[in-house]
Design a binder for these strands. Sequence first.
DNA 1: GATGCGTGGTT
DNA 2: TAACCAAGCAT
Length: 340
Amino acid sequence: MAQAWPTLKRLYLNDFSARLLDWYDAHRRDLPWRSDTPDAYAVWLSEIMLQQTTVAAVMAYYRRFLTRWPDVRALAAVEDAEVMREWAGLGYYSRARNFLAAARMMAAEGFPVDEAGWRQLPGVGRYTAAAVAAIALGQRAVVVDGNVKRVVARLFIVETPLPAEDEIYRLTDAITPGERAGDFAQAMMDLGATVCTPRSPKCLLCPVRAGCRAYRQGNPTDYPRRSPKKARPERTATAWWIERGEGVALVRRPPKGLLGGMLGLPVSEDAGAGERLGQVTHVFTHFRLTLDVRRGTEIALDGDVEWWPRETLDEAGLPTLFRKAVTIAMQEDANVRSGG
DNA sequence: GATGCGTGGTT
DNA sequence: TAACCAAGCAT
């Protein structure tokens, strides 16, 4: 009888993963990075792009990127600026820089063969290393993203506020099967994205609700517990519209920090003097920025300046903040010229 | 462990 | 509409 509980537990867990995998086989989303013969480079690229970024936003970027640079050797050969341009608008630009750096290493050394090896690459953390190992290498790994945290927190009514890393990794480890760990991970993520959603979970469609403690309690949306969030501070700055015969001045931003490595309009932190062409507000994760766009003339331009004819600005690969600023500036500039 | 790092969709 | 949230990582 000493074996009874472990046996029941094992049966329950096998039942859980079996139910979930059956559901996945029937309902899985058809996504461009899903394949019966997964390619490590493609899976890796998708995982990087999907970090804190919605599937819908990633789709077009992923296709373009993979078409243009279909393997690690092709990517390793291109210049930084080209990759940053391709990433423009997707956000979290250090991802692109790290991905390119890692690709150059791997073009020389080959791909890591296990989770620990992947974990060493720049831009590859605990989640991504596990996801690539499970999905691309077919190895068992414990894959925990935001979806999994929510699903697990509800299944086991985790009372610890997020991130609750230790607890959730331990619980996820306990329900991860030895076979099809990659499909299991993707099943958990699909479940979180389509059924066990943050606001209005569709519990009646859930294949594992029978084993869900939050469902039994009747309050799934109370999980995961969260700590109160901080207020978002307001900041202001001035962006300069400097146009000459050759075009508009764009500067390459320093590699680290906000919009690191991207092209942008020259910016000064203090309020500047000069004709105001407009104002844009942009919400970042940790602050809200109001940007005055002013016409500049003799502003000191530090660092690398590129002059882009205004008709070509669409192809410069500007991050969204500066795309907005450029649009405003050109509209107002046109008004000034026509209206007087 | 807390903070900095983008952007767009949903409610 | 403001808040919330999304296949996180580096420091």
